[in-house]
């Protein structure tokens, strides 16, 4: 096999890997935005819990049924959720950053291979 063919094969392999990285990257970005929306919603609920009167009744929607809930318990639940979601967002952010770095690396490799390939063709 000629050197050019080998280079081309390598190039194709790298491009494939790059595309996979891109796919995973956009998946991470979209799940981050979903989590951010959830965080916003939970924060709003928390704000509402902080503002209500003590005698107000809290219900939770379980399936189609409204169930009465203990207020402190519900508030604690929301706080816990906020904590969890914030943690998840942090985790995803780290992941996104590492994907960005990996993509950058791959891009460099591809450019290098491409130049080599062009030269071989000539």
């Amino acid at each position: 096999m000629s050197v050019a063919a080998v280079t081309q094969q390598q190039l194709e392999k790298q491009v494939g890997e790059f595309q996979n990285l891109q796919k995973e990257y956009s998946k991470a970005v979209s799940s981050r935005s979903t989590l951010e929306a959830q965080l916003k919603e939970n924060e709003m609920v928390k704000k509402e819990f902080d503002n209500i009167k003590d005698d107000a009744t809290v219900y939770k929607l379980i399936g189609p049924v409204l169930v009465k809930q203990d207020r402190p318990e519900a508030a604690a639940n929301v706080n816990k959720r906020i904590e969890y979601i914030s943690g998840e967002i942090k985790r995803l952010e780290a992941q996104i950053k590492s994907f960005e770095e990996k993509q950058e690396q791959k891009k460099m490799e591809i450019v290098k291979l491409q130049t080599a390939f062009e030269q071989l063709k000539q």
Partner: peptide, 21 residues
């Protein structure tokens, strides 16, 4: 009235309070 405040939680509110919300 019972007001949906998000994430599946609902709260009893007087009508003026609900309107404010």
């Amino acid at each position: 009235v019972i007001v949906d405040i998000g994430t599946g939680y609902m709260i009893d509110k007087s009508i003026p309070d609900a309107k404010d919300f």
